[in-house]
């Protein structure tokens, strides 16, 4: 986990509201934010854009041995989620039963505390839950 406050603070737009980038030149959306469009490089025109808050699970895993910052939360689900605009993101899946977490399940973004250990601020992030 990153311990300095600014390292977390400057990520708030990405983590709190799923802000990514959109390239006006090629039309592709990116999350996390890109500094340079990989398709257009210097010719790309990147602007901030909020990602959709819904998507579906492409793959998932129940993590039972985690790294030190998540010791108390283990076990937990992680997944790759394809958002409505086709962008895939990595996130935890919460508030969902074992038999609900499956490939293809529709999920929606929630705002959750991620961690309050170690680094001076309470870190919040996106998590997803299976739509009921």
């Amino acid at each position: 986990m990153q311990e300095a406050i600014p390292l977390n603070w400057r990520k708030y737009p990405e983590r709190y509201r799923l802000e990514g980038t959109h390239c006006e030149e090629c039309g592709q959306d990116f999350y996390p934010k890109k500094n340079i469009c990989p398709n257009c490089r210097r010719k790309g025109k990147l602007e901030d854009k909020q990602m959709p808050r819904e998507g579906k699970i492409i793959s998932y895993s129940k993590v039972k041995a985690s790294h030190k910052d998540f010791k108390d939360e283990t076990p937990y689900y992680v997944a790759l989620i394809e958002l409505k605009n086709g962008v895939t993101i990595f996130s935890q899946v919460v508030d969902s039963l074992d038999n609900e977490v499956e490939i293809g399940a529709e999920v929606e973004k929630v705002f959750r505390k991620l961690n309050d250990k170690k680094y001076g601020v309470i870190a919040y992030s996106h998590k997803f839950r299976v739509k009921k």
Binding site: Q2, K11, E14, P32, V63, A65, H67, A79, F90, Q92
Partner: peptide, 17 residues
């Protein structure tokens, strides 16, 4: 670090996906 590890990924989890 910023999107995977921060959100609870381990290497086993990524390969598990």
């Amino acid at each position: 670090q910023e999107t995977e590890i921060f959100n609870g990924a381990t290497f086993a989890a990524l390969y598990a996906l």
